[in-house]
Design a binder for these strands. Sequence first.
DNA 1: AATTTGATAGTTTTGTTAAAAAAGTCAGGA
DNA 2: TCCTGACTTTTTTAACAAAACTATCAAATT
Lengths: 205, 205
Amino acid sequence: MNASNDQQDIKREKILEASYQRFLHYGYSKTTMNEIAGDLSMSKALLYYYFPDKSELYMAVMRKLANDYLKQLEDKLGHFTDLREAFLFQVNTHHDFIVSNYNFFDFFRLNEQNLPDTIWETVGQIRGAEIKLLANAIQAEVEKNNIKPVANPIEIVEVFLDALHGIKVGGSLPHKKLNFPHKEHLDEIHNKRLLLIDIFVKGLK
Amino acid sequence: MNASNDQQDIKREKILEASYQRFLHYGYSKTTMNEIAGDLSMSKALLYYYFPDKSELYMAVMRKLANDYLKQLEDKLGHFTDLREAFLFQVNTHHDFIVSNYNFFDFFRLNEQNLPDTIWETVGQIRGAEIKLLANAIQAEVEKNNIKPVANPIEIVEVFLDALHGIKVGGSLPHKKLNFPHKEHLDEIHNKRLLLIDIFVKGLK
DNA sequence: AATTTGATAGTTTTGTTAAAAAAGTCAGGA
DNA sequence: TCCTGACTTTTTTAACAAAACTATCAAATT
């Protein structure tokens, strides 16, 4: 066992923090390893001592963010008094998560496809946690006889999450290249999602 | 007044038909004016006699398709016995429309952005007709006291259409570059949409 | 006069190559 | 074990020529 693991971990954290700031401001492709190293007053080679390559570094930052988000969801798992509250919690938490890390996800707006496939693992993990949270809430409501039994809670939650994801802005004049919502539209989208929750939850009753 | 307008219109139709076949098989950017002209055994210059440019030709084909679709919707406008029937009709008609013209919309999957802005007019027109159909159905139900009054039917329909649009496949393992659904997934998506209708319509009651 | 075309002009896409920038490696120092 | 400067390899960018395609037009045909 290595006695200096603490020191290593601290340095790793510092690297993650500096990288996060760069990625947040400039996105993945406009951030260079030299710049990150420069911010930390260390050599670029040292970065490669701690992380195998650039995309793994990005992934590590992403995983940290994802873990914070997952923790928020899991802390509340099973502590809801009704279904609407659970759905609201999910949507609000998600909204806050996106808003506060908006620029970090630049690469989703542009198609910076040069990212590792393992990123979809993390995305899938997040989705899994969301599904678990909501399916659990539905199950609890069924057992309390607040809503009628459903054949497959997970299927319903998946449709719900997809539906949420489809909510966009610009109803009358559709915009052409809409990959990722624009920052100033996030609140409007959030409001529409709240409306969807009202209808959807009522439909399950 | 020109006596040969009929002949012109017939030729225009022939051009539209040939162009449709080409666009359907090869998409916009992989279809050349020479090829269309070749299919019709006419000179390329003649195409430019009938249509101002390539994108306007594509638009003309698109408008023809859109008109067929709009006609289907408008024929049924106001002839529904209940809300669910109206929503089902919209989703099924839309599904058939996409399936039968799938390859024509290639340029939506790839980002063939070199299309005229006026295309969004047509897209908006379609969306407008869909909204009109469904908002009308909701209003009718309200007046028959089958569902409770709603503040803004259009807002609800917009959320519904967005939600439909968000339904994708690959719940567990999200796929990276999902712009437009893959052809073999259309049926699965359609089924999920039917589930969404069940819940949504019930939520409006 | 309305249609049609061959020839051609103008523009966009594609392919090539060289220089610059960035990613990634490594032998060796502290 | 941690760290660096110098180095190699890979990717991005820019410039430019060739090819492909769009679009135009004067002249021929009906």
